[in-house]
Amino acid sequence: MAGAHTHPNYVKIWALLLVLLVVSIVGPELGIPWLTLLTAFGIALVKTYYVAAYFMHLNFEKKYVWFLLLISAVLLGVFFFGVAGDVMKTDGQNWQDCISNNTCAEQQRYVDGQLR
């Protein structure tokens, strides 16, 4: 077990997570882009913190476990930004914008919206 520690009130943490869930659903309904980002994705990070810190007992775990998980997330960031330029920058001599000129392979399988 994660060492001797005082157990948090799990039901209170769960209730807080449900409140955050409601906010993450209602916020994007208002249709404001920055509020959608904040409520949908910002609150996902807050919910993750509460689940990890209290349900997974990371707050009572050896500190190096935080580093183990954070290093994984950082390496994922390296992957993300390593390929982002290639995926996102769709201009240049060798790029074809198949979406705009309707030549993508997956579009070719459809004729008038119907699968061939």
């Binding site: 993450s24 659903i25 994007p28 949908a40 996902a44 993750t48 689940v51 997974m56």
Partner: peptide, 16 residues
């Protein structure tokens, strides 16, 4: 809990 956390991210990405 990890499976729960994955869903916490999939829900806004795919649904919201």
């Amino acid at each position: 809990h990890f499976v729960d956390i994955v869903w916490i991210f999939l829900f806004p990405l795919l649904y919201i």
